[in-house]
Amino acid sequence: NRKASRNAYYFFVQEKIPELRRRGLPVARVADAIPYCSSDWALLREEEKEKYAEMAREWRAAQGKDPGP
Score class of each variant (00 low, 15 high):
20 L>R: 00
69 P>Q: 06
19 E>L: 04
65 K>L: 08
51 K>P: 04
29 R>P: 00
66 D>M: 13
33 A>M: 02
7 N>I: 05
9 Y>S: 03
22 R>F: 10
32 D>L: 00
8 A>Y: 02
22 R>S: 11
37 C>V: 09
27 V>T: 07
32 D>T: 07
58 E>H: 15
12 F>T: 02
34 I>A: 09
10 Y>H: 11
14 Q>L: 11
27 V>A: 02
67 P>S: 11
32 D>M: 01
68 G>T: 08
8 A>I: 06
17 I>A: 04
58 E>I: 06
32 D>E: 11
11 F>A: 06
40 D>Y: 04
19 E>D: 10
10 Y>K: 04
69 P>N: 05
31 A>C: 14
20 L>C: 03
34 I>Q: 07
13 V>A: 08
6 R>H: 04
67 P>H: 13
53 A>H: 13
8 A>K: 04
16 K>P: 00
68 G>D: 10
41 W>G: 01
57 R>C: 10
43 L>W: 06
63 Q>V: 10
41 W>R: 03
22 R>Y: 03
18 P>S: 05
10 Y>A: 05
38 S>F: 07
30 V>D: 03
7 N>T: 12
42 A>W: 07
4 A>T: 13
69 P>H: 11
11 F>W: 05
8 A>G: 11
54 E>C: 09
27 V>S: 10
41 W>N: 02
10 Y>I: 02
53 A>S: 14
57 R>N: 09
29 R>S: 15
31 A>E: 14
63 Q>S: 14
17 I>H: 01
58 E>P: 03
22 R>A: 12
44 L>M: 05
2 R>C: 14
63 Q>R: 13
13 V>G: 01
64 G>Y: 15
42 A>K: 13
64 G>V: 15
48 E>D: 13
34 I>N: 11
58 E>Q: 08
42 A>M: 10
64 G>S: 13
10 Y>C: 02
2 R>H: 13
12 F>D: 05
39 S>R: 15
44 L>C: 05
69 P>I: 03
35 P>L: 02
17 I>C: 01
10 Y>L: 05
30 V>L: 08
17 I>M: 07
18 P>K: 04
45 R>D: 08
69 P>M: 09
14 Q>R: 11
12 F>C: 02
32 D>I: 00
56 A>F: 14
55 M>K: 09
56 A>P: 02
42 A>P: 05
9 Y>W: 07
33 A>R: 01
35 P>W: 01
43 L>R: 15
65 K>N: 10
67 P>C: 04
24 G>V: 08
31 A>K: 15
65 K>D: 08
38 S>M: 09
8 A>M: 05
57 R>S: 11
32 D>V: 00
35 P>V: 01
12 F>I: 00
41 W>T: 02
4 A>S: 12
14 Q>W: 12
19 E>P: 01
27 V>P: 01
64 G>R: 14
29 R>Q: 13
9 Y>D: 08
67 P>I: 08
67 P>F: 10
68 G>F: 09
42 A>Y: 10
19 E>N: 00
46 E>K: 12
10 Y>E: 11
65 K>F: 09
7 N>W: 07
46 E>S: 08
65 K>P: 09
46 E>A: 07
32 D>H: 03
66 D>H: 14
31 A>G: 10
17 I>D: 00
29 R>I: 15
14 Q>G: 06
5 S>E: 15
10 Y>M: 05
6 R>P: 08
17 I>G: 04
42 A>F: 11
19 E>I: 07
27 V>K: 01
4 A>H: 00
29 R>Y: 10
9 Y>C: 06
69 P>L: 15
34 I>K: 15
17 I>L: 08
45 R>I: 04
2 R>F: 10
7 N>K: 11
29 R>T: 15
5 S>T: 08
9 Y>K: 11
20 L>K: 00
31 A>Y: 08
32 D>Q: 02
65 K>T: 07
7 N>G: 12
14 Q>I: 07
68 G>R: 11
45 R>C: 13
68 G>Q: 11
35 P>E: 06
69 P>V: 13
53 A>M: 05
31 A>N: 12
4 A>P: 07
66 D>K: 15
23 R>S: 02
38 S>V: 14
37 C>I: 07
46 E>L: 09
16 K>E: 00
45 R>E: 12
19 E>M: 06
11 F>R: 02
33 A>D: 02
58 E>M: 03
9 Y>H: 09
19 E>G: 07
57 R>W: 05
41 W>M: 00
15 E>H: 13
29 R>M: 10
37 C>G: 03
2 R>T: 14
46 E>V: 05
33 A>L: 04
19 E>A: 07
32 D>W: 00
53 A>N: 09
6 R>Y: 08
9 Y>V: 07
5 S>P: 07
58 E>K: 12
39 S>W: 13
21 R>G: 13
45 R>K: 12
33 A>T: 02
66 D>T: 15
30 V>Q: 03
56 A>H: 10
8 A>L: 01
19 E>S: 08
54 E>I: 14
14 Q>S: 08
11 F>C: 06
2 R>I: 15
13 V>I: 05
44 L>N: 04
56 A>E: 10
67 P>N: 10
20 L>Y: 03
12 F>L: 02
4 A>L: 13
41 W>A: 03
44 L>E: 04
22 R>L: 10
6 R>G: 04
24 G>A: 05
17 I>V: 08
39 S>M: 14
63 Q>P: 11
25 L>G: 01
63 Q>E: 11
64 G>W: 10
33 A>Q: 00
37 C>M: 06
55 M>I: 08
5 S>K: 08
37 C>R: 01
65 K>C: 14
32 D>K: 00
57 R>D: 11
65 K>E: 10
45 R>V: 09
33 A>G: 10
11 F>T: 05
30 V>H: 08
10 Y>D: 15
4 A>N: 05
24 G>D: 06
9 Y>N: 08
45 R>N: 14
53 A>L: 11
52 Y>F: 15
64 G>H: 15
6 R>D: 12
43 L>I: 09
46 E>W: 05
20 L>V: 02
56 A>K: 02
64 G>E: 14
39 S>I: 04
6 R>E: 14
8 A>R: 05
45 R>L: 10
68 G>P: 06
50 E>D: 07
27 V>I: 06
63 Q>T: 10
46 E>H: 10
39 S>C: 08
45 R>G: 10
11 F>Y: 11
20 L>D: 01
39 S>H: 14
44 L>W: 00
53 A>P: 03
42 A>S: 12
57 R>Q: 10
64 G>L: 12
43 L>T: 10
10 Y>P: 00
39 S>Y: 13
44 L>G: 00
67 P>V: 14
63 Q>F: 08
37 C>H: 00
35 P>I: 03
59 W>R: 05
41 W>V: 02
29 R>L: 12
41 W>I: 00
65 K>S: 09
35 P>F: 01
14 Q>E: 15
31 A>Q: 08
7 N>R: 07
